[in-house]
Every structure is written in structure tokens, then in C-alpha cells.
Amino acid sequence: MSFDVSVVLAALPAILSGLKVTLGIWLAAAAMGVVLGFVVAALRHFGPAPLGLALRLVVEVLRGTPFLVQIFLLYFGGPYVGLSLDPVPAGLLGLTVYAAAYFSEIFRAGFAAVPRGHVEAAHCVGLTRAQIVRRILVPEMTMLVLPQCVNMAVILVKETAVLSVIAVPEATGVISAIGSQQYAFLEALFLLAVIYWGLVEACGWAGRMIERRLSKFRFA
């Protein structure tokens, strides 16, 4: 096995463009997933019971099936119900909905984990329901769920690789394609592995930094 670095150098522009797509889809899906997930969790916590039940069902289905199957269903099945999407929008939509399901579950557990006594104490000093949500529940929950959110963001980086199966021009698709054209598959895959590894480790490191910063807010 011989490693040919020149292959990598020649393909650098293509590799960078793939990386850009990976990062773009990851960040966009994570951000929209957090927002959508929060809305779902809030509706399940505060909304009418039938809506909560329906949302729970959707979340359970999304969490119980492989992302690959979801993407296939959306991309290949979508056109049959009038949802014809190009690879990038399909990938972005799929990853966002997938992320939202997991984020909503993290937030739901977060709401439930805020000690009842904190809410009771807020009632006693005369805060209104809305104030309690805004001033007590949401900030405390955010502290509680931050580590899991970082964890989920790491999972999402890795899930973007799956989008290569519907021809989204992200890192895995682009780099493995270069590898097979140049007969340097292993070099390409090693490079790819190192890129993801670095991204995941960096994300984990950032998460630990944030956690350390927030540790003083943690209740005993």
C-alpha cells in the first residue's frame, strides 16, 4: 500500500468545496433542528394533550428508524406525494427533521428535570406563569441540556456523511468519488476519516469548555 499525497493536493479545491457543503448543512440543520425541537418540546409540555400525543408519535417514529431509511423515503418517495427535491434541499430538510426529533426529546427531559421547588419558589415570590417560563424554566433547562446538545451536534456531523447516498456533494461523497477516479481510494478515505475525527474532537473540546464555563451555575 503506497500513499500518494499528490492526489490529495491536486484535488484540494474539490475537497474544500465538499467540506464547505458538509459544514454548511451541518450547521444549518443543527440550528434549525434546535429551534424546531424546542417548539416541539414546548408544545408537548404546554400544548393540548392530543397535539402532544401526535407529536410524541412522530418523534418516536423518527427516533426509532434509521436516518438512511428516512432519507430514502424523503428523496425517492417524496416525488410520489408532490415533494420533488434536489439532493441538497432534501438532505437539509431530512437532517433538520431528524435533528429536531432528538433535540425535542432532550428539551423535554430538560423541562422535566427542573426541580419543582424552583418553580414553587418563583410562584411564592409572585412571578406570573409567563415570567416563570421565561426567567426560571428556560434558563435552568438550558444549563441542564447543554452537554446533550453538544453531543447531538457531534452525532449530526457524522450523520451528514449519510447524505452522500443521495448524491449531496458533501465531503464523503466528493472525496470518495475523487478516490475512485484516481485509484486512490484508501488515501481518500483516510483523509476523510481524519477530517471527521478532527471535527468531532474539536466539537467535543468546545463542549467541554462551555460546560466548564457553566459549571458554576449548576445547582447542587
Partner: peptide, 22 residues
């Protein structure tokens, strides 16, 4: 632990699938 948790499973599978014959 760091490697196998840090690299997407899809990339791991492609890597092993192509590495074993080599």
C-alpha cells in the same frame, strides 16, 4: 475509542471494506 466514536460509521465501513483486500 476516540477514532471509532469520531469517524462516521459509513466512512469506517468504506475504509474497512477497502482496506481488508489490500
Amino acid at each position: 475509542v476516540s477514532f471509532f466514536r469520531g469517524v462516521p460509521l459509513l466512512v469506517q465501513l468504506l475504509l474497512i471494506y477497502n482496506l481488508l483486500p489490500v
